[in-house]
Design a protein around this nucleic acid. Sequence first.
RNA 1: GGCCCCGUCGUCUAGUCUGGUCUAGGACACCGGCCUUUCACGCCGAUAACACGGGUUCGAAUCCCGUCGGGGUCACCA
Length: 518
Amino acid sequence: MVRTRFAPSPTGYLHIGGVRTALFNWLFARRHGGQFILRIDDTDAQRNVEAALAPVLAGCRGRGMSWDEGPDVGAPHAPYYQSQRLARYQDAARQLLDGGFAYRDFATPEEIQQEREAAQREKRPFLYSRRWMAESSEQQAAFEAEGRKGVVRLKMPREGKLVIDDLVRGQVEFEWAREQGHVVQRADGTCLYHLASVVDDHDLEISHVIRAEEHLSNTPRQIFIAQSLGYPLPQYAHVPFVAEPGSKNKLSKRKLDKYLKNRDFAQINEHGVAIAERLGLATTGETFNPVIVDFYEQVGYLPDAIINYLLLLGWSLDDKTEFMSRQTMIDNFALERVTKAPASFDPKKLWAFEDHYMQAFPLKQKVARMLEFLQQAGIVAKPPPCDAGATLTRIVEAAGDRLKVFGDILAYADFFFVDQIEYDAKAVDKNLRKEGAAELLAEFRERLAETEPFDTQALEQTLHAFVEAKQIKTGQIIHAVRVATTGKAVGPGLYDCLEILGRPTCLARIDRALELVR
RNA sequence: GGCCCCGUCGUCUAGUCUGGUCUAGGACACCGGCCUUUCACGCCGAUAACACGGGUUCGAAUCCCGUCGGGGUCACCA
């Protein structure tokens, strides 16, 4: 039975690279008819785990990666929080001690550090001298008499080598003598990650540990722990990490300032921030930026777009296929086709996937989601007025593929909803203050007043007739009308805008625009 | 620095195991053009890569050796 797991720490946000790791685990489990387990690695137990955890859970669930066991899912191996499994780890530590695979160590961190520095000075690899190792109770008592506190430290082998058969990297060799004996239990009895992770993977019967490459060097000591405890080994698969835009460094949520210098990244960020501000959301880089999945959720990206993009970051089906349904992903996902080199996060390509998926998204659902955004921004009342649905549908239809994310409805189409539109100064200068523009507009206003019915077809005829009668170019009047009625130089088709706005609004706005420039 | 991993267009990748069909394919971005009432979409086109050096071979992106480059990791964090 294939059982994979994703084991995030509840830090409050989910990194884009984390989502991809979760995705690979989820896909692999589904591909093989196995189970996907969500475990929370909170050995460092913060108090309010629930609150910090919510975004992580939402991050997975929102992207359609359901877990078979884990928080909120009744299941046989509960609890799924490491903070609640301490007793198990302590048992394991005891067992390690009894078997001679670990020992009580009474060195202070400073003493270890001194040995490390000495080794560095002499340019030889550091290996702890085990000077403060206590293997008998007499030794232990002696150290304790000095007032020392003991931790449990791994007694790693100091000869031979380990060969790991990694499902994506192939055979990887390590020399045991290069591996440090890490602490697995602190003096206060709490246990550390490596022990906890190995014990849990065993208890949860994890068959495949699929995780990012940065864990590759942790693997020898985890294997040592597992073998010492008599556990069967899981299969390992170390996938490359997700790198920064335009470099091979590991993507990190801390280096936002650096990423903002990347033009594409900055563009995506700016677009998202503009939407978030209209929604009244906090936009500090720490919690809101394109490295964090929440960013996309809040701005209104489609989960399918994100998943599809992330899947292709380090995996491919063949030489051409890019767009895939969940089922196609599941049917074809294979660890053998995971690339070995790190892949840079490219926000522009994500954007292209978003564009594609949004175009295919059903109009009705699109309208529903955009209504939510309008309500959240306080532009449309809750519950909405009864004609809101029909109008919104018209707007969304008219805007077509110009709306890339749900939040775009706020910045792109706000002029449909507000009474007092704001005029874009540049557009006004360019299109309304031009020689003769105001006069033409004033004249065209009268034609609009008479156009009947006030719909796209008739409006188009009116404009064409006007252009012909005045012997002008279409551009001379059409842009002026657009700016006067919408306030902007860009937007949906003009006739659609006019019809949706309705005659009274159009005339009033033109009057106001004329006042502005005269 | 030690150990480990990686190296095909700017970016994501196909091709590498099983040498020839690769004068290296696709996608995103960029640039140019078409369409057009703006923008967006769509369409067409262009530029662009086998890190380098040796071997092996009739033939190497693919096999071998070396060099260089990039990255990860070296915690009583996870």
